[in-house]
Structure formats: structure tokens, C-alpha cells
Design a protein around this nucleic acid. Structure first.
Length: 168
DNA sequence: GCCAACGTTGGC
DNA sequence: GCCAACGTTGGC
């Protein structure tokens, strides 16, 4: 029995890991998340086939830069076990992992980023978790929000044809 | 680089 | 278990 896909938004600082980086490596483990609410989504919420909006955070052009898809559901984030890793957390042990990750694959990079200002003013997106809980780096997106954003992306790919100026 | 929002830590 | 202090996130 398969369930309908769910939709998510995942933040990344593009200076650290961008949609182009994901395109280059095809699949990546989304590791290093150290927030309990985001952890719960990674561990229990994200399932194979779910859609992911790739969000650029903390950069000069914050917004959605492309799409990804979950290819492996939650499993322990082993960067927490490695004392040399920046995300090391001694409280997380192999027999009692605290932190989880998923694997996502590249789907598409938008030709241009959909800026947060556009999202904010688009009808139907006002209640996105992005605006209600700005600091959550893994967050659910409704089917309706997902569809609205895909339409914005299409519009950006295929801008309305300008009427040609009549010759003088 | 500033600073508001907010999650976490730790003293009590 | 309260809450002040502190650290981090992230838009601007």
C-alpha cells in the first residue's frame, strides 16, 4: 500500500550546499540537522517519493531554487558520532541515535530563484510554515502550497510573451 | 553586520 | 519546572 506523496521544504545555505551541488552529486544525505522538530520530520515524516522544495537561506537571494525528492527515509545521522565532524554530538550514540537524516535526489534547478518576497506576497502562501516558524529548516508544505509554487516556477521559466511593439 | 525571533542550557 | 542567559538562524 502506497500513500500519496507529502511535500516538504528544506533549507540550505547555498554557500555551503546549493541546488547546483545537489545536481552535481545527484543524491545526498541531508545531514547535520540539529533541531528536534526538524529531526522528528526527518525521522518520521519524510518518505520515499515525497517532494522537496530546495530553499536557499541566509544568502543575498533567499528563496526556492529547485526541487528534490526523497529517495531514502529517516535513518541515523552518523555525522553525530564522529568527534572530528562539526556536527558531532556526544549525546547521540550508535545504540541510541538522537539525530536523523534522509537521502534526497536532484530533480530540477529553477532557472531563477523564487524570492521569499514573491512567496510572501503570493495569495495562498501566507500560512506557509516558512513564515510562521521562520527558523525551522525542515518543514511540511501543503499540496496546495506545492502546486502554487510549481506554477510560480513555470511562470519564471516561461515568462509571458511580451507583445511586440508595433513598428513606427 | 545588525538584530529579532526563538531554541537550548543550566542555576535555582 | 521556571526562567534568565546565551547561542543560532536568517531576513534585511
Amino acid at each position: 500500500m502506497t500513500r500519496n506523496p507529502s511535500y516538504w521544504l528544506m533549507k540550505s545555505e547555498p554557500d555551503v550546499f546549493s541546488i547546483q551541488d545537489l545536481k552535481a552529486c545527484h543524491v545526498t544525505g541531508w545531514d547535520g540537522v540539529r533541531n528536534y522538530q526538524a529531526r522528528n520530520y526527518l525521522r518520521d515524516g519524510l518518505k520515499v517519493g515525497d517532494g522537496v522544495l530546495f530553499y536557499n537561506s541566509n544568502t543575498h537571494l533567499s528563496g526556492i531554487s529547485g526541487l528534490a525528492e526523497v529517495v531514502k527515509g529517516g535513518y541515523p545521522d552518523d555525522t553525530a558520532f564522529d568527534p572530528k565532524d562539526v556536527h558531532y554530538d556526544p549525546k547521540s550514540r550508535t545504540d541510541h541515535p538522537i539525530w536523523y537524516r534522509v537521502d534526497v535526489k536532484f530533480v530540477r534547478a529553477f532557472r531563477s530563484v523564487i524570492p521569499i518576497q514573491t512567496l510572501r506576497k503570493t495569495p495562498g502562501l501566507k500560512n506557509m510554515v516558512l513564515f510562521r516558524n521562520a527558523r525551522l529548516s525542515v518543514q511540511p508544505v501543503t499540496k496546495r502550497e506545492w502546486e502554487i509554487i510549481l506554477r510560480l516556477a513555470e511562470k519564471a521559466q516561461n515568462p509571458t510573451v511580451q507583445k511586440p511593439r508595433s513598428p513606427q
